[in-house]
Simulated assay, not measured.
Amino acid sequence: MKTFSNKLLMLAAVCSSALAQTTLADDDHHAKGYGKFEFALIGDVPYNEVDYWKFDNVIADINANKKLKWVLHAGDFKNGSSLCSDELFEDRLQRFQTFKKPLIFTPGDNEWTDCHRANNGAYLPLERLDKVRELFYPVPGQTLGQKTMRVETQADDSNHAEFVENTRWMEQHVMFAAVHIVGSNNALAPFATRTSADDEEVVRRIDAALEWVKGTFAKAKAENAHGVLLLFQANPGFELAKNSNSRIGFEEILAEMEREAVDFKKPVIFAHGDSHYVRMDKPMKGSISNRRIENATRVETFGADDVHWLRVSVDPKSKEVFSVHQEIVEKNLEEHPQP
């Protein structure tokens, strides 16, 4: 009987150990070391129905890469002239859930701010925003994907409880955050059925974005992060003249990003989609010195007709921290296979 009890205790210990290892595997994004890792960056996909098969190829390509920690999606999961229907939203969710790795998604303008357009179904944008939050952020602080990951969410702050989409996490002394900044002048573009509620939403969201950016850099400095990456959908016009029409809705946020990047001094990536032009450059100039801010780099994803992905390598011990690699999906260069 004693021998049997001992075996039970040993079995319990093994099970407890296995459970602990599983938990650690799920939460390994909180690791505080300095190891190298990689992740995928996509956006503006799937855009056109005729290219769904290409997006399937991108998903398969990413899923086949065992080194990737997660997938970042920079928003716009549809084009600007297609229906914003529940059915389309549910289709996108199903596609996103085929990623084997955690998927962090930040909303784009095409899935809510522009849904007032007749060819989008003449929806109320704020109603569509509610639907996006309901479907794509069902559990606050938990990512999408077949393997989920716990992240910090701004919804935990009672002052910004609606912003479940603003998330943050640390990996190997590198800080990551997604912040809800969208095209169409950050949802300030006029439309026929616009009301004061639409204007008030923009004010709240910009306030939340400013707080999230500030808090992200404060936490990065407090935890001695070696780099910071901010993910958002809009191209805010980094390189454009201040107060130009294309920067309406973005000026406060751009000013905060500049201040934080200059003060941080270490590598900063601003990752976005929106203009369908893959690039990596340094467009940000200091407002006082008018000098290029060398530690701030913009990375724009593939998107729309160019259905490929970016692989981002992170080495916290290197001077640059981030390096970006184009992953051209060869199958997507071919004609659509005939049925």
Rank of each mutant, 00 (worst) to 15 (best):
K2H: 12
F4A: 15
S16C: 15
S17W: 12
L19N: 14
T23R: 10
L24D: 11
H30S: 12
A40K: 06
Y47R: 07
N48W: 14
N48P: 08
N48S: 13
V50S: 15
K54P: 04
F55S: 05
D56S: 10
A60Y: 02
A64V: 06
K67R: 09
K67T: 11
K69Y: 12
D76G: 06
N79R: 13
E90T: 14
E90N: 14
R95K: 15
F99M: 07
P102I: 04
I104G: 05
T113N: 09
C115D: 10
A118Y: 14
G121E: 09
Y123W: 12
Y123Q: 11
L126K: 00
T143F: 07
T143K: 01
Q146T: 09
M149K: 04
M149G: 02
M149C: 04
T153H: 06
A155L: 06
A155T: 14
E162H: 13
F163P: 02
F176L: 02
A178E: 04
I181V: 15
V182D: 06
T193I: 09
R194V: 11
R194C: 07
T195E: 08
S196Q: 15
D198A: 05
R204I: 05
R205A: 10
E211S: 12
K214G: 03
G215S: 04
F217I: 00
A225T: 02
H226M: 08
G227Q: 00
V228T: 02
L231Y: 01
F232N: 04
F232M: 08
Q233N: 08
F238K: 01
E239L: 06
L240T: 07
A241M: 11
N245D: 12
S246Y: 10
G249L: 00
A255V: 08
E258N: 03
I269Q: 05
H272R: 05
H272K: 01
D274G: 03
S287C: 04
A296D: 05
T301G: 00
G303H: 04
R311K: 15
E320S: 10
V321R: 00
V324L: 07
K331Q: 09
P337F: 09
